[in-house]
Write a protein that binds this DNA or RNA. Sequence first.
RNA 1: GAGGCGCUGGUGUAAUGGCAGCACAAGAGGUUGUGGACCUCUUUGUCGGGGUUCGAAACCCCGGCGUCUCCCCA
Length: 450
Amino acid sequence: MPTYQAPRGMRDLLPEEAAGFDRLFAVMLARAQRYGYPRIVTPVVEDREVFLRSAGATSDTAGKEMYDVALHGTGGLALRPDGTAPVTRAYLEHGLHRTPQPVRVFYWEPMFRGQRPQKLRYRQFWQWGLENFGAAEAAADVEIIEFTNGLLATVGLTDVVLKVNTIGDTASRPKVKAALVEYFSTYRDELDDDCRQRLEGSVLRIFDCKNPKDRQIAAGAPKVRDLVSDEDRAHFAEVSEGLERLGVRYEIDDRMVRGFDYYTRTVFEFILTDPEFTQAGEISVAGGGRYDGLVRTMGGPDVPGVGVAGGVDVLYFALKQQGVKIDESVNADVYILSGDPNDGADRTQLATPLREAGFRVAIDYSKRSLDKQLESAVKHGATVAVIRGTEESRGGKVIVRDLVAKEQRVTRLAAVVVEVGRHVPKRQKPRLVDEPGAAGEAPYLTDPRD
RNA sequence: GAGGCGCUGGUGUAAUGGCAGCACAAGAGGUUGUGGACCUCUUUGUCGGGGUUCGAAACCCCGGCGUCUCCCCA
């Protein structure tokens, strides 16, 4: 047993999986940017109040799942359990409500919940999300949902179904609750303990009860959609129509509600349908909705909002489960070998132009026999070996050997990059600024067109 | 936070309460410097702490971690 282990419910992403996550992130970030949602990054901790205010009193996230941080000299910090509250805090703190609306942002960050870990439910997990502040129109709801639908399709997730519902706005809420309390009260004695407690607190969540008996009772309850205001219904009709016109397939789930109190009107979830995930209830890969009262609750003006959040770990697992190919390769393209045991610096010198050209280049530092170095290069998964310090590689020449095709060629030093390029696919080289025809790393931190 | 089940080198496994083995992987070397083979050698383990016992990987208790269920939820 190792002396130290990762904390309970937290895991390492080893290079292969991390590489896959990077790919997924790149796809998502690019998509978010194309929709006009640039990335935002907030601290990993916030004042506990930020979460307490946003989540609502009846949410467990606000209570026992809060991941408190005991830090010398600070009071009342907690690791963030989700992205919406911190982003909303940032929106208000930086006066983004006084910038052109709507404000659209994307995030991808680790989140924390102090719960007992289960499969795909960690104490530290990765979550991505979109938030849109300042747009009350149904088209914003539609955009958020359509984004998610397209994202999941793009990355290759097929076994998923979209469920939508409306739970009415804050004005409708009292009426909705009253009607549901009235209905469920007649069955008070038949509900199990947990469920009966919800009757006092957030009645809506009775629909989430797992007990078969409770579910049966819930099935007969009045539909929330029939209890909300005409405006709420009209909004929902617009959302539905928008989804239909965009060809987004969905089903209306009369009993779907969400865990947080701040949701208003539209709520939605993307549920995994692969048998692997439906054994013990539904697992959603993404979900969200409208939260028109949240900004106000957090101490700001009356600004509408709508957003989505998804679990990266769940999505990633589901994709693997479905057999979606994700490139997790971390191997070097090129391995530098040498028959000369005392030419360490020369090996690095040989690697430099290849690295400049964008190849992944690893060096065998050892003084072992070429035999062993070659074996090692193969085991490390390199595609090409560049060999110096041999008979053939004198006079400014090296051997470029394709380890897959098992063919090699003696090449002039000046032509190594080109020769390697014949065997290894080009890799994109990141730059600080996009500039047509730019060579090398751009030294600009600002856009030169400014 | 509660409950069920589990935990043997890096991985996969074996060992009636009686010497902790095996395979793969890993490292070094050789096959006299062009590769995954082969050969030799080497490293690494009973999750931790108590207890029962002449003797514990095994039985008991506490803790850790995983997994599933509940709670809750991404």
